[in-house]
């Protein structure tokens, strides 16, 4: 029998098991909003584990959503490799100029040690603080960039695509280094207290690379990597469409998939039912200008399309909600989930 009010962790585990919990779980994947809550600049906020942990705690409480999101910013990984991070006032820190400037640098490239990186160590500390605060009631989501997608920041998108097509030998060498790093980084987060790992892999989306090339590249990379991560994973294509590769992704052993706002949620639900939990797919960019009425419309539509039978977590489509999305919209999303997301779902 399902209890009237589950904890966030119970709710999420129930939906991951493709059963209906008390209501549709909500992941508001907020990163920079924690800085607003703390009254800090973005660089200052991400400089200390305590700030991020407290920011996440306040955001979870304020919006009554169902996870702690231990993601700082994507470029933190390239910082560990010696790359540059460029901070800005009103957006996520970016990876600066790629540090792999020629293919010669890939030969003999050794992955950095996770625990010797000050930036990554700060993330691990934040996860530890969040896990302690969660007390087994709220899932703590760790994040890795997939070995297949990390080169976009390591060497730039164009040179990376050219390498995939023209230099399979160098591609294989870079993947070997990246896989070793990704596995160590994911497992360190799990050891620190993360409940699950979000495996960001936008390059595997058919929007970026054809399925036939993905099956020769990103797919085997994911199979090798996810198989050595000692905990549950969710694959996220960060706004890239997922439908044409959803079954392939299910075969990698991941438990969930981040779905794009450009995907047909009902169609992808049919493919993934009983195999993959869907995470998505509210359009984070449009969210900036949503009215309360619009929020209720889109939340209702998403839940109607994908909520039945569990296996669905309402979230944004990108894995990071833009800094510009106002508090009123986030509060309205939370309210709309309470209004429309109670199981058994009503026919709207």
């Amino acid at each position: 029998m399902i209890p009237h009010e589950m904890t966030s962790l119970d709710r999420v585990l129930c939906t991951l098991g493709h059963n209906e919990p008390d209501r549709v779980p909500l992941f508001l994947l907020l990163t920079m909003h924690g800085a607003k809550e703390m009254g800090l600049s973005i660089p200052e906020y991400f400089s200390k584990a305590q700030y991020v942990a407290e920011g996440q705690r306040r955001l979870q409480e304020k919006y009554n959503h169902d996870c702690y999101y231990a993601f700082f910013y994507a470029a933190i990984e390239t910082a560990a490799w010696g790359g540059e991070v460029v901070f800005r006032e009103n957006g996520p820190p970016n990876a600066g100029t790629p540090f792999i400037k020629s293919l010669d640098q890939i030969e003999g490239l050794a992955p950095p040690g996770v625990k010797t990186s000050p930036a990554l160590s700060e993330v691990l500390r934040a996860i530890g603080l969040l896990a302690r605060d969660a007390d087994g009631k709220v899932p703590v989501i760790g994040v890795v960039i997939s070995p297949f997608s990390l080169p976009v920041m390591q060497m730039g998108f164009g040179p990376y695509i050219e390498m995939i097509y023209r230099r399979p030998d160098m591609f294989a060498q870079l993947m070997a280094a990246n896989e070793a790093f990704c596995i160590e980084w994911a497992n360190a987060q799990l050891e620190a207290g993360a409940t699950a790992i979000c495996y960001f892999d936008p390059v595997s989306s058919p929007a970026i690379i054809p399925r036939e090339i993905y099956l020769e590249t990103g797919h085997p990379v994911a199979m090798r990597t996810l198989g050595r991560i000692n905990g549950p994973t969710a694959t996220h294509l960060a706004s890239g469409i997922a439908l044409p590769v959803a079954e392939d992704i299910a075969g990698t052993g991941t438990a969930a998939i981040g779905v794009s706002s450009a995907d047909n949620l009902a169609a992808i639900k049919e493919i993934c039912r009983g195999k993959l939990t869907l995470i998505g797919n509210l359009n984070g960019l449009e969210m900036v200008n949503w009215t309360r009425q619009k929020v209720f419309e889109v939340v209702k539509a998403a839940i109607s399309a994908a909520g039945a039978g569990g296996g669905f977590i309402l979230s944004d489509n990108h894995g990071e909600i833009p800094y510009q999305v106002p508090e009123a919209v986030l509060l309205a999303i939370s309210e709309a989930v309470q209004a429309y997301g109670r199981y058994p779902l009503k026919s709207h």
Binding site: G158, P206, I213, I241
Partner: peptide, 17 residues
């Protein structure tokens, strides 16, 4: 074709190059 999800961005890029 890319805008219609028929082709991938990598194909657009390589074609252009």
């Amino acid at each position: 074709g890319w805008a219609n999800d028929q082709y991938a961005l990598s194909q657009v890029y390589m074609s252009g190059r």
